[in-house]
Write a protein that binds this DNA or RNA. Structure first.
Lengths: 200, 200
DNA sequence: GCGGTATTGAACCGATCGGTTCAACATAGT
DNA sequence: ACTATGTTGAACCGATCGGTTCAATACCGC
């Protein structure tokens, strides 16, 4: 009941998430996490069971605090505005110098691959969630008349997932958002041209 | 002059490349490389200067032996066939169980980020090369009348780069090519519908 | 067989890894 | 002030890391 209760778990998680986001899972050592969180190794081990367990918490936090707000853009009633909003917001995160480059979930996907374990499962679930969000939005666009009735929503959604992950790769590699910006421009030209319903 | 000359450098490089491709740069230890190449640690250090130098050689080999043949598909005279050929061939590599999942260059891009060093430069150069190859092909399609005259070829090329890297992420994460296949189908539906010249 | 060389195995280096333990410490409630 | 509790620092564990060295070995051309 009594005793000291300081040390904000939320702040620690945020700091750890950013550390992992900067350097990847393996490259981030417990020492790095100590520095990032300002916590002692013992405290870290005490609060979170292990490095992997901490990383899982960080991935969950990332999905909740970073990925989900992006998906909110898809709620816009106009399909073109929704897609534009999503990718514009993604690009502006790339431009934010306070945000680490790339995407934590994408880094984890490449690093951990399909290795057994909780993390790999989370990575796949994250991918699936993004796919379903896009697919649901595309289906809505079809019933709204913003997309042709015969649109393969699953395929289009997979394409959008692929693009968003590819953008993260581009941003991670070159550090700026130049190429990613071009890619988004290309996307908006080709896939969802302004003026809503696609011809033909 | 005389002496022994066995130990095929080409085979060693191939094996090392596949090892890096499977596990990433950091996660592949010298011991792993010993097992993969069948060479002694001393031999590796003797033939290639260091682990990083070996990795650079592997990246160069990857660009030459894996990436370049993919780009050859772009030489097909019909634009739609060229793009289809590129991505179909990429997908079939994902289906090849003898090929490691994902893409070595993309893994390196995520892992090494924009960290200083030779490798980071190579990764960016690789990205730029792919972008230029796509852009040149798009320009040709414009002059062939396969793409609208006002097409932003740089943007479209960046989009295609982004998609191809995103596909590697998808394949890496889920191990199969299901989602990647869907994404390519979406791409072919939206960006380069069969029947050549895009409407409008 | 002989000489010379490519290759090997093994030992070793300092450093770091994730994980664990525990005594010392600081603090908030009583 | 006392005590219970959260936190800290430091030492330690076994293991592995990339890198280096060197004597022993296997093999080729002669």
């Amino acid at each position: 009941m009594s005793g000291r209760k300081q040390f904000n778990e939320d702040e620690a998680l945020e700091a750890a998430m950013r550390a992992f986001w900067h350097q990847g899972y393996e490259a981030t050592s417990l020492s790095d996490l100590e520095v990032a969180t300002g916590l002692n190794k013992s405290s870290l081990y005490n609060a979170f069971e292990s490095k992997e367990a901490l990383f899982v918490r960080c991935l969950e936090r990332y999905a909740e605090r970073v990925a989900k707000p992006l998906a909110w853009e898809l709620k816009k009633p106009d399909f073109h505005a929704a897609i534009t909003g999503f990718f514009d917001r993604l690009i502006s995160r790339f431009d934010d110098p306070s945000a680490p480059p790339g995407c934590l979930a994408t880094m984890a996907a490449m690093e951990l691959g399909q290795s057994a374990g909780v993390t790999a499962g989370l990575v796949c679930a994250n991918l699936e969630a993004q796919h379903e969000a896009f697919e649901a939005r595309c289906r809505q666009a079809v019933s709204d008349g913003h997309l042709a009735a015969d649109t393969d929503c699953g395929a289009l959604a997979a394409l959008l997932v692929s693009i968003s992950r590819g953008l993260a790769v581009l941003n991670r590699a070159e550090g700026n958002s130049a190429l990613a910006r071009q890619a988004v421009a290309g996307l908006l030209n080709q896939v969802t041209p302004a003026g809503a319903p696609r011809p033909q």
